[in-house]
Nucleic acid binder design. Structure first.
Length: 1040
RNA sequence: GCGGAUGUGGCGUAAUUGGUAGCCGCGCUAGACUUAGGAUCUAGUGCCGUAAGGCGUGGGGGUUCGAGUCCCUUCAUCCGCACCA
C-alpha cells in the first residue's frame, strides 16, 4: 500500500541529499586541512586510531570520534588552528590469521578493511584532515618505527643524569675508565677497567653492550603461546591464556628483543602527576609500574661466608622477626644452597614448580608450597641463623628473587610458617599473631634491639640507616614493571632493521630504511619452528648476513604515531623540527581505557626517549585524555515454552488450593507409575502428556484405572495450553460425577514452537529465553510475522500474547553477532542521517560512561533535527528568516543557550548540550521566532554537533563560506539579567511555594514579603518563625 | 583479598559551589487532525492518595536552617590488580 508520504512530496528535511552534498564539499575544498599558522594558537586533538577489522564499525566505535570531532569543530570556531587527524593501526593478528587460513596476503585484507572503515567514517561527517592519514603497515611509515628502534638500540640510560644517552658515549667511557664510574640502567653485574674492556674481542664487547642498550637482545622468560606460535606481552596474557583467542600460554626461555622501559620507571610514575588524565588510568599505571620503597639487605650464608643472599623488603623495621628465608625456584643460588641430603627433594620441587603453568600456580595460591634447602643464612642485625627455603610464592622476577620471611607481620610468610610449622616471632605490638599476621606500620617495635619502642613507620628509616652504616644493606626503590618484550614470531608486523654478523646483532644503516617486509610462501612458522620471515628468499644483507626473522609487536607502530601526523609526507625525517615545535604534543586524546597498561604506557616511554634525544619538545605525549565508555548491546529475548512444563503449570494453577472444592496433590506415585495430579478424596487422577504419548499409553491407563477404581482424565499438552477453559470445564464436570471418555482431543495440532510473552504470569517456570534479532523488535514489542520469517524453524511459531502484543525481555550484554544485538552505524545514518546519529550518541549520556545502545530513543533526536529545520525553512523549502530585531525573550533564550553550550563543551559534557539545544529549539518554537539575528548564531552553536544541517542552513541564509569558518557566538550576560526573582520558600526545609519579588530586594524585605504572602499563613500555623534564612537570589527557608 | 568507580522514575539521564530532586528524550495515558498511521500536534505522566497531604535519590545512622551532593556504616553492581616481599 502506498503511504501518503510516498505520493505527496512533503517538504521535509532531506538528510540523505544534504549530508552527501556537504561531505563532498568538505572533501573537495579541503575544509579541514590543517597547516602551520603562527598567528593562531594550535590545538592537537587526537583519537586512538583503530585497527581495521573485517567486521567494520559498529555503533560503539564512533562514540569517541564523534565527541572529539565536536570538540575539534568547536575549537576551530573558537579561533584555534586544529590538528585533527586519523589513521590506521594496520598491523595485527586477525589479518595474519585470515592470511594463514586463506592464503590471502594480509596487506590485501587490510586494504579492503581500511576502505570499508573509511566509507563508514566518511558517512558520519568527521572533520578529519585526511591528507595526514597514516598507516602503520605502510613502509613509508614504518621506516620511522625502524628508525626509532635503531635509536633505542644505540642508546643507554644514564641514571645519574636521568636520561638516555648514546652508546658511543658509553663506549668512550669504557675505553677511558671501564664501567666503574657509570650509573646505568643495566643488567650487567661485573666491573671492568679500561684495559679489560680493550682486551675483549668484538663479540665480548657486543655482549657487554647488550646489557646496556635500551633495545636489547636477551634470554628472557617469555609468555609463549604454542597455538599462536608467538610470544605475547604481559598485557596480552590473562590468567595463563592469551587475551585474544584464549589459547594456553606457557613460560619459556627464549632469545628476545626487549625494550628497557624499566629504566624510565621513576619518570613514568612522576609524570603521572603532571598530566590531566582520568584518575583510574593513572592509578592503573601506578600499580602497573608498582613502585615500592624499602631496603636491600644482605644475609651471609652460614656455611659460605663469602656469599650472601640479597633480599628486598619494604619492612626493614621487622628484621628482628625474621625466622626463615625463601628463595624463588629459579634463584641462581638454589644449587649452592642445597645440602646433599636435601638435594633430591629440592630438585624435585624446583622441577615441579618450573613446569607448573601460571594457571596452576594461581589455582593453588592458597596452599603454600616449598622445601627446605638444608642451609642457613645469618641475619645481619642480630647474627641469628635462619633456615633457607625454596618456595614458589617468591617470584624470580621481582626484587632479588629472595625474601626475608617475617611471619608475624606478613600474611604470606604467616601462611607459609603455619603450614610448615616454622616459628613466628612478634616484633611489632598491636596485633594478635596467634590469629593472623599484623601488617600495620602503626604498632610499636618490640624484641627488636635498638628499634624497641619506636613506631614501626619510623623504625623503617632507622633500620636503613643502621644497614648503610654497617654496610649490610641500603635503602632501595623497587619496581614491578618489567622490560617490554619486543619480538613476535609473526609475519604481519615491522621487520627489525637488524642483521647478524657472525652472530653479533647489528642495525642496518639508516640510509637502507625502510627494510620492507618480504614476501613469503606461507604465513606459518617454518618446520624447524622459526618465524615466518625465515621462509623469505634472500632475507639477508647484500653481504649475505642474515636479517632478524622476528617482527615487532602491535604497540611498535602505535607508540609514537602522533608525531608522524604532524608531518606525514616528510621523506627525509620522521617529522620536521618546525612541525614538532609548532604542534608539540597532543592536547586532547580520546580513546579506550583498555589501553592503560599497553599503548598508553609504551607511548609515554617512547615519547620520553625521543625527548631525551632532543627530538621532541615535551616529555609527555598526551596532555589531557578522556576515555570513552563502551557501548554495550541491548539484547532482546523471546521465551520459548517447554510445553509439558507449561501445561502442568497452567493446570496446577487452576486446581491447587481446593479451587475446585477438592484438595489435589502434585505428583502421585503408585509403584513405578507416576501421575501429574491426584485427588485422594474423589480418586481422580489427571495426567498431561503429548497426544502421541497418550494414545500410545491409553490401553495401559484404561486397565490401571479399572483395576484400582480410579477416574482418569487425560489431556494433551496442546489442549491444556490453547483450550484451557474447555479443559477446566471438563475437570469440573468430572468432579461433579459426570461420565465421559477419559481422553479426547480438542485440537489436532502439528508440532510447532510456542513463545510466551515476557510478562505472562508464571513464565519463568516453563520457558527459557533465546536471543532474537533486535531488528525484529521495536520498543520491546516483537514483530511476530518478521520473527516467523527470520528462521525456517520458527515459521509456524505460536505466540502467547499480552493483549495483542508479544513483549520481549531484554538484557545489557556485549555487542556481538551471536547475540543478534549489533547496531551498525550505516543503517542508522541511512535512516536518520549522520547528524541525528552524532547527536543521539552524545545524548545517550556522559561520553566517559559505559551504556547500553538502545535505538528506541533516536526518534526523539530525529524529531529535533526536523524541528530545527522548520524553524528556518517553510513547507516550500524557502528560508523564512526575517531581519526583524529580536526581542528580550528571544535574546534570553539564545544567550542562555550560548552560555550553557560553551561551558558544557569545555568540560566535555556533551549530553547536556544536546538537551540545551532541544530546550532552545522548543522555546524558540513557542516564541514563533523567525529572526535571523537569533537563528544565525544558533546554527553556529549547533554546527559542531550537527555539521551537515548547520552548513545547509548557513548556506541558505546566504553565506558562501563554510560555517566551520564562523566565529562561535559569545554570551552577552546583559540579556540574562532577570528583573524579578522567584524565591522557592521552604518551611523547615520543605519547599511550599514560589514567591516572586523584584530583583535586588533586600533580605529584610524578602522576609517581610514571605510573612505577608497568603500561603505562609497555613504553614506558620499562627506561630512566629524561629528563624528565617534568606540566601539572596536562591532560596528562603523559614524555621518554625 | 587489595585498589578504584558507580547506585536517582518503567528506561537513558539532569541537578557545575550543600539551596525548588526528576531538566531533556524515550516509553506510557488521554485528546485533536485523519479513510488510514509506526506521521504530526496538544495535555498529562516519580510513588501512595478522590483530595488535602504524605513519601521519595540502594539500606541504616549523623552533621546542617537545609543533604542526591558532606561524614560514618552497610549492601549491590562494574572495572583494575592479584603471591610484587
Amino acid at each position: 500500500m502506498q503511504r501518503f508520504s510516498d505520493i505527496t512530496p512533503i517538504m521535509d528535511y532531506n538528510h540523505r541529499d544534504t549530508e552527501a552534498r556537504w561531505q563532498k564539499y568538505w572533501a573537495e575544498n579541503k575544509t579541514f586541512s590543517a597547516s602551520i599558522d603562527h598567528n593562531k594558537p594550535k590545538f592537537y586533538i587526537l583519537d586512538m586510531f583503530p585497527y581495521p577489522s573485517g567486521a567494520g564499525l559498529h555503533v560503539g566505535h564512533p562514540l569517541g570520534y564523534i565527541a572529539s570531532d565536536i570538540f575539534a569543530r568547536f575549537k576551530r570556531h573558537k579561533g584555534f588552528n586544529v590538528l585533527h587527524p586519523m589513521g590506521y593501526d594496520a598491523f595485527g593478528l586477525p589479518a595474519e590469521q585470515y592470511a594463514i587460513e586463506t592464503g590471502q596476503h594480509p596487506a590485501i585484507t587490510t586494504e579492503q578493511n581500511i576502505k570499508r572503515y573509511r566509507e563508514q567514517l566518511d558517512k558520519i561527517g568527521f572533520s578529519f584532515d585526511w591528507d595526514r592519514e597514516v598507516r602503520t603497515s605502510d613502509p613509508a611509515y614504518y621506516k620511522w618505527t625502524q628508525w626509532t628502534f635503531i635509536r633505542l638500540f644505540n642508546s643507554w640510560y644514564d641514571k645519574a643524569m636521568q636520561k638516555a644517552r648514546s652508546v658511543e658515549e658509553l663506549v668512550a667511557q669504557f675505553k677511558k675508565n671501564g664501567n666503574s664510574h657509570i650509573d646505568a640502567a643495566s643488567t650487567y653485574d661485573f666491573i671492568f677497567d679500561a684495559a679489560q674492556w680493550k682486551a675483549m674481542d668484538e663479540a665480548a664487547q657486543a655482549d657487554v653492550l647488550m646489557h646496556f642498550r635500551l633495545a636489547y637482545l636477551a634470554d628472557t622468560l617469555v609468555n609463549w603461546c604454542p597455538v599462536l606460535g608467538t610470544v605475547l606481552a604481559n598485557d596480552e596474557v590473562s590468567e595463563g591464556f592469551s587475551v585474544r583467542g584464549g589459547h594456553p600460554v606457557e613460560r619459556k626461555n627464549m632469545k628476545q628483543w626487549s625494550l628497557r622501559i624499566t629504566a624510565y620507571s621513576d619518570r613514568l610514575i612522576e609524570g603521572l602527576d603532571r598530566i590531566d588524565w582520568p584518575e583510574n588510568i593513572r592509578e592503573i599505571q601506578r600499580n602497573w609500574i608498582g613502585r615500592s620503597e624499602g631496603a636491600s639487605l644482605r644475609f651471609l650464608l652460614a656455611d659460605n661466608p663469602d656469599k650472601h643472599l640479597e633480599v628486598f623488603t619494604t619492612r626493614p623495621d621487622t628484621i628482628f622477626g625474621v625466622t626463615f628465608m625463601s628463595v624463588a625456584p629459579e634463584h641462581e643460588y638454589v644449587e649452592l644452597l642445597t645440602k646433599p641430603n636435601f638435594a633430591e627433594e629440592v630438585v624435585k620441587y624446583v622441577k615441579h614448580a618450573r613446569n607448573r603453568s601460571e594457571r596452576e600456580r594461581i589455582a593453588d595460591a592458597k596452599t603454600p608450597s616449598g622445601v627446605f634447602t638444608g642451609s642457613y643464612a645469618i641475619n645481619p642485625f642480630n647474627g641469628k641463623a635462619v633456615p633457607v627455603w625454596v618456595a614458589d610464592y617468591v617470584l624470580g622476577s621481582y626484587g632479588s628473587g629472595a625474601v626475608m620471611a617475617v611471619p608475624a607481620h606478613d600474611s604470606r610468610d604467616y601462611a607459609f610458617a603455619k603450614h610448615f610449622h616454622l616459628p613466628i616471632v612478634e616484633v611489632i605490638k598491636g596485633g594478635n599473631i596467634a590469629e593472623e599476621a599484623f601488617e600495620s606500620k602503626e604498632g610499636v617495635c618490640m624484641n627488636s634491639g635498638f628499634l624497641d619502642g619506636i613506631i614501626a613507620r619510623e623504625a623503617i628509616g632507622k633500620a636503613i640507616e643502621y644497614a648503610e652504616k654497617n654496610k649490610v644493606g641500603y635503602g632501595r626503590i623497587n619496581y614491578r614493571l618489567r622490560d617490554a618484550i619486543f619480538s613476535r614470531q609473526r609475519y604481519w608486523g615491522e621487520p627489525f632493521p637488524v642483521y647478524y654478523k657472525n652472530g653479533i646483532p647489528c642495525t642496518i644503516d639508516e640510509s637502507q630504511l625502510p627494510l620492507a617486509l618480504p614476501e613469503v610462501d606461507k604465513y606459518l612458522p617454518t618446520e624447524s619452528g622459526e618465524p615466518p620471515l625465515a621462509r623469505a628468499k634472500n632475507w639477508s644483507t647484500a653481504e649475505g648476513y642474515p636479517y632478524e626473522t622476528a617482527t615487532m609487536p602491535g604497540f611498535a607502530g602505535s607508540s609514537a604515531y602522533y608525531f608522524r601526523y604532524m608531518d606525514p609526507q616528510n621523506k627525509d625525517a620522521y617529522f620536521s623540527k618546525e612541525a614538532v615545535n609548532y604542534w608539540k604534543s597532543v592536547d586532547f586524546y580520546v580513546g579506550g581505557a583498555e589501553h592503560a597498561t599497553g599503548h598508553l604506557i609504551y607511548s609515554r616511554f617512547w615519547n620520553k626517549f625521543l625527548f631525551d634525544l632532543g627530538l621532541v619538545p615535551e616529555d609527555e605525549p598526551f596532555r589531557k585524555m578522556i576515555n570513552q565508555g563502551m557501548i554495550q548491546g541491548r539484547s532482546n529475548f523471546v521465551y520459548r515454552v517447554k510445553p509439558e512444563e507449561m501445561a502442568e503449570f497452567v493446570l496446577w494453577e487452576m486446581i491447587q488450593n481446593k479451587q475446585l472444592g477438592f484438595e489435589f496433590k502434585k505428583e502421585f506415585r503408585d509403584g513405578t507409575r507416576r501421575f501429574d495430579f491426584y485427588s485422594e478424596e474423589l480418586r481422580v487422577i489427571i495426567e498431561v502428556k503429548s497426544r502421541e504419548n497418550l494414545e500410545k499409553l491409553l490401553p495401559a491407563y484404561t486397565e490401571y484405572a479399572k483395576e484400582n477404581n480410579f477416574k482418569l482424565l487425560l489431556f494433551s499438552i496442546v489442549d491444556v495450553i490453547l483450550h484451557t477453559d474447555e479443559v477446566l470445564a471438563k475437570i469440573k464436570r468430572a468432579l461433579a460425577g459426570k461420565v465421559f471418555p477419559m481422553f479426547e482431543v480438542i485440537e489436532e495440532w502439528e508440532e510447532s514452537p510456542i513463545f510466551v510473552s515476557a510478562n505472562i504470569y508464571g513464565r519463568e517456570n516453563y520457558s527459557y529465553p533465546i536471543h532474537t534479532d533486535v531488528n525484529l523488535v521495536s520498543n520491546d514489542i516483537l514483530d511476530v510475522d518478521a520473527f516467523r520469517n527470520w528462521r525456517p524453524e520458527f515459521n509456524n511459531a505460536k505466540f502467547i500474547l499480552e493483549g495483542d502484543k508479544y513483549v520481549c525481555g531484554w538484557e545489557v550484554e556485549k555487542m556481538s553477532k551471536s547475540k543478534y544485538n549489533v547496531q551498525n552505524p550505516d543503517d542508522l545514518v541511512e535512516k536518520y542521517g549522520a547528524d541525528t546519529l552524532r547527536m543521539y550518541e552524545m545524548f545517550l549520556g556522559p561520553v566517559e560512561q559505559s551504556k547500553p545502545w538502545d535505538t528506541n530513543g533516536i526518534e526523539g533526536v530525529y524529531r529535533f533535527i526536523r524541528k530545527l529545520w522548520r524553524l528556518f525553512i517553510d513547507d516550500e523549502e524557502n528560508l523564512i528568516a526575517t531581519n526583524d530585531a529580536p526581542d528580550g525573550a528571544e535574546l534570553k533564550v539564545l544567550h542562555k543557550t550560548i552560555k550553557k553550550v560553551t561551558e558544557d563543551i569545555e568540560r566535555f559534557s556533551l549530553n547536556t548540550c544536546v538537551s540545551s539545544f532541544m530546550i532552545c529549539v522548543n522555546e524558540l518554537g513557542d516564541l514563533k521566532c523567525r529572526k535571523r539575528a537569533i537563528l544565525e548564531p544558533l546554527s553556529i552553536l549547533i554546527s559542531p554537533f550537527a555539521p551537515h544541517i548547520a552548513e545547509e542552513l548557513w548556506n541558505k541564509m546566504g553565506h558562501s563560506e563554510s560555517i566551520s569558518k564562523a566565529d562561535f557566538p559569545i554570551c552577552n550576560e546583559e540579556y540574562l539579567i532577570e528583573s524579578t526573582v522567584k524565591y522557592p520558600v521552604s518551611f523547615n526545609g520543605k519547599m511550599r511555594f514560589l514567591l516572586e519579588v523584584a530583583a535586588g530586594t533586600s533580605k529584610e524585605d524578602v522576609e517581610k514579603a514571605v510573612l505577608a504572602a497568603p500561603e505562609s499563613e497555613k504553614w506558620l500555623e499562627g506561630k512566629a518563625p524561629k528563624k528565617m534564612i534568606v540566601v539572596p537570589g536562591k532560596i528562603v527557608n523559614v524555621v518554625i
